[in-house]
C-alpha cells in the first residue's frame, strides 16, 4: 500500500520571535518530500510535546536563538517522556556553542545544527533519524 511519508514537527520554544530560520528549514524539508507541521513561535515545551503526539510525527526539530537552548531543549524531551513519547527523536538548532552541543547530545538531543550547517546536512540528518 501507500509507502510511508516522513512527518516532522518544527517548533520554536522560548521567547525569541525570529522564525526565519525555522521557516526556511520547514520549506527545505517540504522540498525534500517531508510533511512538516509548523507550530509557530513562542511555544512551551509542553505544547510542543502534545502537538508532536497528536500529529504522531517521526521527529521534532527545535529552533532557538534566544540562548536558552540548554533549558528549553531538554524540557521538550522531558515533556515527551511524560506523554509516553520518548521514542520521538528530537533535533535542535540555533546559535549553540560547541560545549553546549555536547551537553545537549548527552541529554538525548539527537543532533544539533548551528548557523554553519548546510541545508543538505540538515535534511540528511532528519532522514536518518526518521528512518530509525
Amino acid at each position: 500500500m501507500a509507502d510511508k511519508k516522513y512527518r516532522v514537527l518544527i517548533a520554536k520554544p522560548g521567547l525569541d520571535g525570529h522564525d526565519r530560520g525555522a521557516k526556511c528549514i520547514a520549506r527545505a524539508l517540504r522540498d525534500a518530500g517531508f510533511e512538516v507541521v509548523y507550530t509557530g513561535i513562542r511555544r512551551s515545551p509542553e505544547e510542543i510535546a502534545v502537538a508532536a503526539v497528536q500529529e504522531d510525527v517521526d521527529a521534532v526539530g527545535l529552533s532557538s536563538l534566544s540562548g536558552a537552548h540548554l533549558q528549553l531543549f531538554p524540557k521538550v524531551l522531558e515533556s515527551l517522556k511524560k506523554h509516553d513519547a520518548a521514542d520521538i527523536p528530537v533535533i535542535g538548532g540555533g546559535i549553540v556553542p560547541d560545549e553546549d552541543i555536547a551537553i545537549l547530545k548527552e541529554q538525548g538531543i539527537q543532533a544539533v545544527f548551528t548557523p554553519g550547517t548546510s541545508l543538505a546536512d540538515i535534511i540528511t540528518t532528519f532522514q536518518s533519524v526518521c528512518h530509525k
Binding site: 511519508k5 517540504r30 509548523y38 509557530g40 505544547e47 500529529e55
Partner: peptide
C-alpha cells in the same frame, strides 16, 4: 516533491 507544510495549527495553539 510530495512534501507539505501544515501551518493551520499555529492558529489553534491556544488549545494545545
Amino acid at each position: 516533491t510530495g512534501g507539505a507544510i501544515h501551518g493551520d495549527r499555529i492558529r489553534m495553539m491556544q488549545h494545545a
